[in-house]
Design a protein around this nucleic acid. Structure first.
Lengths: 220, 220
DNA sequence: AGCAAGAATGAATGATCATTCATTCTTGAT
DNA sequence: ATCAAGAATGAATGATCATTCATTCTTGCT
């Protein structure tokens, strides 16, 4: 039996009993990005250290530089990941052929934007941590605005369809899309900073109100 | 003549030729807070150092700790200052006896919120830098939510008056106030992160649209 | 089994930062 | 003119951090 020696080795190698594992590059990258998200949410972007992230990931300090070359790179890729996840989700709903009714499509979008997945404190924290730095960091600004632009165009197109279908007068799709996006951003901010005063339920209701005022024939 | 010796001294003391000056405590504190705002806007909250702030203020490194005890304290007081400046401005408009027409009051509020003073990149950067950290720092959360609460109540009261005056049906002042505040926050965010796609002019127009849809008899 | 390739480790390094405090300077009262 | 009070300075300190790299370990191939 080799059990005894194996146990001793395991304990000596790591407090959690895990052995050193070799995994594909893509998997390690994702592990590190996930750990970074958790660290930013818990400690704030400005307090995140490489030691913190790698400990959170259950890996050694050297590995982050092996896969990302630098901290700046890791942070940049983390932002890209979160940004793309959010905007791909939106676009999937807006382009998806599975929903034919436009009112249902609006509902699905709202559910996604203010539903469980996105409004996790974790994701919102990351989101706004980067927004906070974007004013001083053109790199962040570029990532966010690039990915934002496409979603904005799709939303505008969806609104335009609804306006045509409902024959709404005096409604500009571009203006309305800008307003709706801003409203959602603002609600996310409220959910993050003043969770006591703004519940998810109320945030949904507020966003729905906005849409109902614009498209009364499609919402409710 | 003591001119020669004085000149030598001045040059030796400071590159700008200024002598060491003794100023009241309150004035130094404000100088440092102003310098902190500029530094956050230019370099981002996470890159701000004490050396950077004191150099920006034209003072020595030691003085920040003399007046604020610690960096954390300085950052906290800077947030408090920016938050109070914004919310006092709002409340002044909402309480001011100089404007009797409620529609005018709404206009004044909108002008303040999306006008020159507030939408300076500097102020917005600071604003969102702290929001970004608020998820992880209860202290920031508390400062913002405390000062936010009062403004939200006043806004709700203003909306309630307008609803009464215009006899608007199916409009909940609380819900609308939440929506409007979120919209303004979102527009600020857009102005900061994607200034190419969202101009101040368009932001104003979007906010005005929101209000017009809710209070058609009061706006335009 | 033995070996080469390269993934993973973590102690060591050097840089940067917040904070301290002995010293210098200014001001206003005597 | 002198002096005490305390405002201001900045070199020094110690802590923390990102990054490096010599070494160890794992995997898959022969």
């Amino acid at each position: 039996m080799t059990d005894a020696s194996a146990t001793v080795l395991d304990v000596a190698l790591c407090s959690t009993g895990k052995r050193r594992q070799i995994r594909p590059k893509a998997e390690r990258r994702q592990q590190l990005i996930d750990a970074t998200i958790r660290c930013i949410a818990q400690h704030g972007l400005s307090a995140v250290t490489m030691q913190m992230v790698t400990r959170e990931a259950g890996l050694s300090v050297g590995i982050a530089n092996l896969h990302f070359q630098s901290k700046e790179n890791l942070l940049r890729e983390t932002l890209r990941y979160v940004a793309e996840e959010y905007h791909n989700g939106q676009i999937k709903i807006m382009e998806g052929a599975d929903i034919t009714d436009l009112g249902d499509r609006l509902d699905a979008l709202l559910d996604f934007q203010l539903g469980r997945g996105v409004t996790q404190r974790q994701k919102m924290s990351v989101w706004f941590a980067y927004y906070g730095e974007a004013g001083a960091r053109p790199v962040y600004q570029k990532i966010v605005s690039t990915v934002d632009r496409l979603a904005a165009l799709k939303l505008e197109a969806l609104f335009a369809s609804i306006i045509r279908e409902g024959d709404y007068q005096d409604v500009d799709p571009r203006e309305l899309a800008t307003g709706y996006s801003a409203l959602i951003d603002g609600l996310h901010l409220g959910l993050l900073v003043t969770p006591r005063e703004l519940t998810k339920r109320r945030a949904r209701s507020v966003a729905r109100d906005f849409l109902r005022r614009a498209f009364p024939k499609h919402i409710y």
